[in-house]
Amino acid sequence: MSTSQTTIDPPRPTSLTLTVNGELRTIEIEPSVTLLDLLRERLHLTGTKKGCDQGQCGACTVIVDGKRVNSCLQLAIMKDGCEVVTIEGLGAPGDLHPMQAAFIAHDAFQCGYCTPGQICSAVAMIDEGHATTSDEIRELMSGNLCRCGAYTNIVDAIEDVLSQRRRHLEAAE
C-alpha cells in the first residue's frame, strides 16, 4: 500500500505508510528523514542502533522486504509500502528468536551496542543461503563491526543456528 504523495515540492512533512514488525504504521515525515531516525525517533524502536550513521558499521542493520540493509542510508520516504523487521520484531524476552538465544548461549557480545545489527544481519544472512562455512560467515558478516571484538563468539553463535537448522531440515526429510 502506498499513501504518500509522489511529489513533495517544496520540502514538507508528508504521510508515509510502512509495515513495521507486522504492524501497519502511518507517519508524517520530511523527505530527509532516514529509516533509522524514523524507527528510533518517531516510532521509539530504539533497539536499532545509530553507530557511524554512514553505512560503515552495520549497527543500524534492519530487514526491509526480507533483505538486510543499513537503515542509516535509506530515506524513509523511499520505503513507502515496504515491510520492515527490526530486532524488536524478531523476538522478545521469553520468546527469543533462535539467533538471539544463540548469541546469549555463546556470549557473543560484551557492550551489546552492535548486537541488534549483528542479529538482524545474521538472521537475514541465513535466509540468503550463501553461508555454510565459518570463512563464508566471516566474509558475509563483515558489514557488522564489533569494537569489543566478540567476533569469534558471534561466528560460533551463527554456526550453532545454522547447524540447528540443518538438523531440523534433516529431521523433516
Binding site: 538486510r68 566474509e139 563483515s142 558489514g143
Partner: peptide, 12 residues
C-alpha cells in the same frame, strides 16, 4: 561484486 562493500550495501 562479492569482493566489494558489505552484504547490506550490496542488497541496497
Amino acid at each position: 561484486i562479492l569482493a566489494g562493500a558489505s552484504a547490506q550495501l550490496r542488497n541496497a
